[in-house]
């Protein structure tokens, strides 16, 4: 492969990555959101592979395979099982409606590009240029945590956030050391498992998974 094809693949994957994040905010059907998460995970794996090809790091291919397996396969699969257990498929009453959410997402992407300018200027490589995409995903994920009620939306928001962090790590520094990557992935898996258990428990306790039902534990 020549350099320009790598760059094109990288740009394409980054675009897909951002689009999946915005799409997750747009769709109300939780199954569709989970599908978009899988797409984003796959895009992340492609980003890692393209960077591996671009910068001649063969071990990045292995990392890409692992990331793809976890974020496009295992985590969406777990989320889907939780969805089947909870039995509700719509984020019926989000705290911020979809149209406003999309406007907010646009503002957050602009903010991410504005903030990441000094970082992107440090290095002229295509990876560094695409860095704001990861930051945008982090912000969109945080926004989703704030704006959505259902426990599974929270899982989705959290995964968006973490995908964003990982993408920034790849784009800025061609990935963190393998050991750290494994540790982070393991944590992520645990978080999703815990949230899945929480979803099921909430379903059996309240008949719904609206997080605002959990208000007892305050000062």
């Amino acid at each position: 492969m020549n350099g320009s094809a790598d760059t094109q693949i990288l740009d394409f994957a980054c675009g897909l990555f951002l689009l999946a994040a915005v799409g997750a905010l747009w769709r109300r059907e939780l199954s569709a959101v989970i599908g978009l998460l899988a797409v984003q995970g796959a895009a992340l794996a492609v980003i890692a592979a393209a960077l591996g090809a671009d910068e001649h790091h063969p071990e990045l291919y292995a990392v890409a395979a692992g990331v793809g397996l976890l974020r496009a396969g295992v985590l969406p699969g777990l989320a889907r099982r939780a969805l089947a257990a909870s039995g509700e498929d719509r984020e019926s009453q989000p705290l911020v409606n979809v149209a406003s959410s999309l406007l907010a997402a646009a503002a957050l992407v602009l903010l991410a590009y504005a903030v990441a300018q000094p970082l992107a200027r440090l290095d002229a490589s295509p990876g560094a240029r695409a860095l704001p995409v990861g930051l945008a995903s982090v912000l969109i994920g945080l926004f989703m945590l704030v704006a959505r009620r259902k426990a599974l939306s929270q899982v989705a928001g959290f995964l968006l956030l973490d995908n964003g962090i990982t993408a920034v790590a790849f784009l800025a520094a061609a990935g963190v050391p393998l050991l750290v990557e494994i540790g982070v992935s393991f944590d992520l898996l645990l978080v999703v498992l815990v949230l899945r258990v929480l979803t099921v428990r909430m379903q059996s306790a309240f008949g719904a998974t609206d997080l605002d039902d959990l208000r007892e534990l305050h000062d």
Binding site: L95, V146, L211, D212, L214, R215, L217, H218
Partner: peptide, 8 residues
């Protein structure tokens, strides 16, 4: 006030 969303 106990709302997770508010804290987030």
């Amino acid at each position: 006030n106990g709302s997770v969303h508010r804290y987030l």
